[in-house]
Amino acid sequence: MTMAEPESTLDASTPAGMLEGDLVKRARHGDLKAYDELVKRYQERIYATIYHMTANHEDANDLAQESFIKAYQALKSFRGGSSFYTWIYRIAVNKTINFLKQRKNKYHLSLNDIDFNPENDPELVALISTKTPHHDAGLSELQKKLNEALLKLSEPHRMVAVLHDVQGMSHEEIASIMGCNIGTVRSRLFYARQQLQGHLAEYMKPA
């Protein structure tokens, strides 16, 4: 008697085990299960990017959903010149920047629906306790200041700062997503950091 082998979690016959290219092919032919898997793979990163740009949970929720819907509708025009990951990011970034331009000067911070638990990150706790002059200022206040500082940047500068310093993307990836060259990404990042440094100066003075 032989024991049945446990099912692999990455079975290539199931959407979860498929390569991105295969999922895209299936989704292009209307396979919603395949597209469901694609959404699951990238939903957190797409949502996070949009949220860091808008600082509003509801807006991020709507824009993230609309980005995936739009991507599905436009799948037939996806030539495969870049990865689906880059492509869906590009859609989300364009959609977010357009949304923010339309909503200019009407920013509404909505952090109530967001969980913020950096206490578990000892490195960050140490940073706050040693570098922040206002020790009494809670993390939530710092979170608010961070978002306000980011919202003061122009959309392209904020996007570069979010993708690089928050999301941890490379310059090349950002250039591909934003449709500009690497030099532009570097200069935008430098300018954005300078601006942020000015806005958050009180949190970076030596103790």
Binding site: Y47, H52, H57, F68, L124, L142, M204
Partner: peptide
């Protein structure tokens, strides 16, 4: 500044939010 910006990574939606997103 980069370390400070890393704080943003801890801003996540409520637990279970992504369960029904797709």
């Amino acid at each position: 500044l980069r370390q400070l910006l890393k704080l943003k990574r801890h801003e996540v939606p409520p637990p279970g939010y992504f369960n029904n997103f797709s």
